[in-house]
């Protein structure tokens, strides 16, 4: 990377631990790179997955989220909930093409000024090696941004949020049928939903621009044609898309707009 690349990093800090740790680094005069910009919230559990997507859509080269140590959360288990959401967001964004190293969730306590500085320094160095957003990622800009926007839509949608929200219920108490899921099972389910949601939102995004046939969509979006058909039909059933005539032998679909 070029020497003068100075990454643009966002840092989310919870009010009780990591923000106080950052203050302590300050009063202790522990030096670290001037690349991070701290956003304060009450708890890392407040970090909405769409917010994470927002960061990269607006152009952050890295996003470091810092909470309390596990077991020390001021809000009992907010950081565990943060972990689940951030993992999900991470998977979705990486699926959309983001380099996985650009997003990190870590912990620093109010008494760990040095650790706060170290985490910032390490993250800075890592992002500096990666280079600007779009350079070490699956897609260059602006294509990456487009894909991240789709991921954001997926992350804003009910499916992923419901499953991740219910994750602890499923793994601890079971669903309403009493089925208890293992972490592995639930993660596999989530991964499947992410793929489905990403595909669905890609299709919607494509159809928003112009009507298209399934095979063209499959080609453009690099989704296997049978899967593409499945998603389009599902969208059709839910009333998001509708037939818009036939071109050749292929039915053309168009976007209908959000239904509630």
């Amino acid at each position: 990377m070029t020497e003068d690349f100075y990454p643009r990093i966002l840092v989310f800090c919870c009010n009780w631990c990591s923000y106080a740790g950052a203050d302590l680094a300050g009063v202790s005069r522990i030096q670290y790179p001037a690349t991070g910009r701290i956003i304060r919230g009450m708890c890392s559990g407040r970090v909405d997955p769409t917010l994470i997507a927002d960061a990269f859509i607006y152009g952050a080269d890295g996003f470091l989220i810092l909470g309390c140590h596990f077991g020390d959360c001021h809000y009992i288990d907010g950081n565990y909930k943060a972990q689940e959401k951030i993992d999900m967001a991470h998977e979705a964004l990486v699926y959309a093409g983001l380099n996985p190293d650009r997003l990190e969730f870590n912990q620093a306590s109010a008494a760990e000024g040095q650790r706060f500085a170290d985490l910032n320094t390490e993250f800075h160095e890592r992002i500096q090696k990666l280079g600007p957003l779009g350079s070490a990622d699956k897609y260059p800009l602006p294509e990456l941004t487009e894909r991240l926007k789709i991921a954001q839509k997926a992350l804003a949608g009910p499916k992923l949020r419901w499953v991740v929200g219910k994750k602890s219920v499923f793994t601890n108490g079971g669903n309403k049928y009493g089925e208890v899921f293992t972490q592995h099972e639930i993660n596999r389910t989530l991964s499947g939903i992410i793929i489905d949601e990403m595909a669905t939102h890609s299709i919607i995004a494509a159809l928003e621009k112009k009507p298209a046939a399934v095979k063209d969509l499959a080609k453009e979006l690099e989704i296997p044609p049978p899967d593409t058909l499945k998603y389009v039909l599902a969208l059709n059933r839910r009333g998001f898309v509708e037939m818009d005539g036939v071109e050749g032998t292929s039915p053309m679909y168009k976007y209908k707009g959000e239904q509630s």
Binding site: M42, C43, G45, R46, D48, P49, A82, K85
Partner: peptide, 20 residues
């Protein structure tokens, strides 16, 4: 106590935390 876990979860974005 304002942790905001609810706000980060609601898929309807119907709930949020004042000042955050």
């Amino acid at each position: 106590k304002g942790c905001g876990v609810c706000a980060a979860t609601c898929y309807r974005h119907a709930i949020t935390i004042n000042s955050f």
